[in-house]
Design a protein around this nucleic acid. Structure first.
Length: 494
RNA sequence: GGCAUCGUGGCCGAGUGGCUAGGCUCAGCUCUGCAAAAGCUGCUACAGCGGUUCGAGUCCGCUCGAUGCCUCCA
């Protein structure tokens, strides 16, 4: 375990708190995963990448982390009342597929996309449909405790009754009286005692395909239940971290707290973390409004929003240049700025391999390294971390020009630290790809052309030399003349 | 309407009451056959109004504006 002083902003208390896990050296973390009825869009990805950073950093600090992220494969209704359609069923109807075919298709898409972003898979990835029994047991327990009631084969959570003993609304800062006063009801609620009550179990209509037997009816679980069932099953009644998108804070996470407290009489989560939204045109990315971009469309450049394609690692770097609790707006200009910075950062890192060393070091590497940790320890402040990494870039470039010096030992520490943060913590990828066989062949061919060009330049045959340079550029290969010869770089995705 | 968050230089985006965040753009310079690339230097902002304070982007109040949630949503 590395020594650290990690502080996490807790949404429940609205303050940064020192992180102390329940079991020393181990962390239990649950994150709400996607509902797999369509391709994950970039906004969904941001949340999962925010928690990938958390996962990676906790592991980097030496914790044994059990990271549970669910797959919601039983769709919930569009509203909690009597009407509305399950989005998975709707998709299955439209595309004439079995619901589980829909689920399978988009689960695979989700995994493929996260792999492109170089996100670590969670330790356990449970599905809602795989935990129906556990969910039914929780409903039974809540009924037993007196906080739920059955009406016409459906079971609802009695929020008003719960609120007499516990506190409903403490996470999202709402109080029940206000909510009741401001209820806007469009259609009559026949089954619920109160509009604030939420479904634990819903009786299925005859046409509803996804259904399971239960003590109350053939039906399906309410949409807040799966997370309570799976988080407590794999992490215990009380665990360290629960994360999710800001838009899940209410009602989803509020209801999770209520369910868990009704069952176990203990607040389930010590640190609630909420990742903020990715916006497009100033508005939240959202499947239902069509205001979103798909990851693959941005990797290929086939979209109307961006001027060019961007790689997964650049996209991730762009996201990490903003703090996870801030809204981030997505635009072509902002992506381009990040891409240039990213390339500069990677160039500097590569340069460390052929850096000359001296007796002394003109920069305090140890204290620089500490400032990197300080940034991450302050509620995973990746933008500050990246600012520090750019300070190192400046130093590395100065080394090259002989304006600064570094000892062999410090060079090793600098390189190790850069490596740790760039690749282990941020999970970035060096896009060079020199290792493949094709890459070697390409390198050989381009180096030959570079040699021919330099001969032409020596002979002042600039017509030939410029032809080589310009035509390679047209093919997406950029020559870069430096003091120590010419190198080349492939334009991304051309 | 209710709850919450936010408004930072040309753009993006950090900021624990007092000291230059950082990236990109732009300008100048170095390098170069020319260019590109690369490097260096420069560009001091905090929505408005009032208050607390020796001192506020940072705390308090009001005004204006934006966003999220209150229906499925990361």
């Amino acid at each position: 375990m590395k020594q650290h002083d990690l502080h996490i902003y807790n949404s429940l208390t609205k303050t940064k708190e020192k992180f102390t896990p329940i079991h020393e050296g181990a962390v239990g973390m649950y994150v709400c995963g996607p509902t797999v009825y369509s391709n994950v869009h970039l906004g969904n990805c941001r949340t999962f990448l925010s928690f990938d950073l958390v996962f990676r950093y906790l592991k980097h600090l030496g914790y044994k982390v059990r990271y549970v992220r669910n797959i919601t494969d039983a769709g919930h209704l569009e509203n909690d009342g009597e009407s509305g359609e399950d989005p998975i069923l709707r998709k299955a109807r439209i595309e004439q597929l079995e619901p589980m075919e829909v689920v399978q298709r988009y689960t695979v898409d989700f995994h493929t996309t996260m792999a492109k972003f170089n996100a670590h898979p969670p330790s356990i990835e449970p599905t809602a449909t795989g935990h129906i029994i556990e969910q039914i047991q929780i409903v039974e327990k809540i009924i037993e405790e007196g906080f739920a009631y059955e009406t016409n084969g459906s079971v609802y959570f009695d929020v008003l009754k719960f609120n007499k003993t516990y506190e409903y609304g403490k996470l999202s800062g709402r109080n029940l009286e206000d909510m009741i006063a401001n209820t806007r009801e469009l259609s009559a609620q026949t089954d619920k005692k109160n509009p604030q009550d939420f479904a634990l179990w819903k009786k299925a209509e005859p046409q509803h395909i996804m259904r399971w037997p239960s003590p109350w009816s053939d039906g399906f679980p309410g949409w807040h239940l799966e997370c309570t069932a799976m988080s407590t099953k794999y992490l215990g009644d009380n665990f360290d971290i629960h994360g999710g998108g800001m838009d899940l804070k209410f009602p989803h996470h509020e209801c999770e707290i209520a369910q868990a407290e009704a069952c176990n009489h203990i607040s389930p989560v010590n640190y609630w973390m909420h990742a903020n939204m990715l916006t497009l045109n100033g508005k939240k990315m959202s499947k239902s409004t069509g205001n979103f971009i798909l990851p693959d469309d941005m990797f290929t450049g086939e979209n109307d929003i961006l001027s060019k394609p961007f790689s997964p690692t650049v996209t991730k770097f762009f996201m990490y240049q903003a703090h996870y609790r801030s809204i981030l707006d997505f635009s072509s200009e902002a992506l381009e700025a990040s891409e240039k910075g990213f390339n500069r950062l990677m160039d500097a890192y590569r340069m460390l391999d052929n850096t000359e060393t001296s007796e002394k070091t003109s920069l305090d590497i140890t204290s620089w390294r500490k400032s990197c940790y300080d940034a991450m320890n302050d509620d995973f402040n990746s933008p500050i971390l990246i600012a520090h990494l750019f300070e190192a870039v400046k130093f590395i470039n100065a080394l090259k020009e002989g304006k600064e010096t570094i000892s062999t030992e410090d060079l090793k520490l600098l390189k190790q630290t850069m490596h740790d943060f760039l690749f282990d913590v941020l999970g970035l990828q060096n896009v060079a790809g020199e290792n493949s066989q094709d890459g070697e062949k390409l390198t050989g061919a381009v180096e030959l052309l570079i040699e021919l060009r330099n001969q032409a330049r020596a002979n002042k045959d600039f017509a030939t030399s410029d032809k080589i340079r310009d035509q390679l550029a047209e093919k997406g290969i950029q020559l870069k003349d430096g003091k120590e010869g010419t190198t080349f770089q492939l334009f991304n995705n051309v």
